[in-house]
Amino acid sequence: MTYLLLFWEFFQTGLFAVGGGYSTLPFLQKIMERYPAWFGSLQLADIAAIAEATPGPVGVNAATFAGYSAAGMPGAILATFALVLPSFILVSLLARALEKHRQNLLVDSLFSTLRPAVTGLIAAAAWSVIQAALLKGTLAGGLIQAFEWKNVALFAVLLGLLFVPKVKKLHPVFFFLAGGIAGWLMGIFI
């Protein structure tokens, strides 16, 4: 039964997650809310971090990892397979059809509304990752108590670095490495 559910959930993700990369995250978040047992103590940001730090597209990494946490090796293969199956079929059909209708106005209209909507969707996913990283309580419990201030400081420094001309060209992996080292040091000294 777990296998069937895994296949179904990740097939849906592959079928509806438009925009690649982080657009899988909100779907993953939904799956985590629905099946907390699949993920143990893991949080969305942990999976995002592991996905970012290993080769391959984030969505595929996330599906493999979630499938493995849920049902071991077969689960990992199944979730990955389910995620890419809709792409394989849809894109193949589209690649054939689009050769004929490249300049079509409907195609252009659909693309022009999908892009900004998907951007908003990804921004929402980012927002939940930011909350998980920077908050230790709820905002209702008082603003000063709600934030983990050492994390807010680290966040500000790293985000600032991402706007420095030469530094921002660095591979994201270097930023995660820096974050990991900073976190390790903060754990020892603060």
Partner: peptide
């Protein structure tokens, strides 16, 4: 501790990516 830091870094990198996406798609 390490993942606490990595999580913050992921949040920063994603924030930056979203800023880029908004610039090119909206």
């Amino acid at each position: 501790s390490i993942f606490n830091g990595v999580r913050v870094a992921v949040a920063a990198v994603i924030t930056n990516a979203v800023i880029q996406l908004v610039r090119s798609n909206v």
